[in-house]
């Protein structure tokens, strides 16, 4: 795909923003394409992981954060494992997803973010995952009322779906962890804004 990149699209501190999260420089990537070649989800991506790394190197923030690639990455870590330059490509994908959410970028994939949101909300409420609640809430939130509707009874009659949540005795502490994580993440974003 041909890309025309006008100068103003470059965000000067974007590369450092990503590197601060992954704790590593992305400049070592020499664009060999090994990551894209081995990526199981590449057929569904608008840009392969190799291109995304290039966007990060060049500070092309909008291109990186609005591509469907970051929401199509399955976090299988094949790319990071095979990178001859030891660039943590999966870590970059995480960093981009985190930045996109913190900075409220228009998210290309509401299915993935809705699932994450409900999954983490369940941990906050119960301390543990609540599987039937996860599936039910997810289908409601994404308006896919009949998705997997045939699988529910299969699981239920095998005794694999518990109707009631399995709570941890640590729920109060878990809520405190979520509260402090929010503060910590807000503080690191504010520090970055202060430096910029």
């Amino acid at each position: 795909m041909q890309l025309k990149v006008p100068g103003p699209m470059v965000v000067s501190d974007f590369t450092q923003q990503v590197e601060a999260i992954i704790g590593q420089s992305v400049s070592k990537c020499y664009q060999c394409g090994n990551c894209t070649a081995g990526c199981p989800a590449a057929p569904e991506m608008d840009f392969g992981p190799q291109r995304i790394i290039r966007f990060v190197q060049l500070g092309l923030k909008d291109l990186a954060l609005t591509s469907n690639t970051i929401w199509t990455c399955a976090s299988c870590v094949t790319c990071t494992t095979r990178c001859p330059q030891e660039v943590d490509i999966t870590g970059v994908m995480d960093a981009l997803r985190i930045i996109a959410q913190r900075e409220h970028y228009p998210v290309q994939d509401r299915y993935v973010t809705a699932l994450n949101d409900i999954f983490l909300g369940n941990i906050r409420t119960f301390g543990r995952q609540y599987e039937i609640g996860l599936i039910g809430k997810y289908n409601l939130r994404t308006r896919q009322f009949f998705k997997d509707v045939m699988l529910g009874p299969k699981l239920f009659f095998k005794g694999k779906l518990k109707l009631l949540p399995h709570r941890s005795g640590n729920v109060r502490e878990v809520r405190e962890i979520f509260r402090r994580v929010k503060e910590e993440s807000a503080a690191s974003s504010a520090n970055r804004a202060g430096r910029a």
Binding site: S75, V181, S188
Partner: peptide, 30 residues
């Protein structure tokens, strides 16, 4: 492990880098 909590799984590390470490670290401290 008494009162263990969820590790956050993939949903944790794709959403917040601090949450991704805090939940498993709590399990390990327990």
């Amino acid at each position: 492990i008494p009162n263990w909590i969820c590790c956050g799984a993939t949903m944790g590390h794709t959403t917040d880098d601090n949450l991704a470490l805090a939940l498993p670290a709590k399990v390990l401290l327990n």
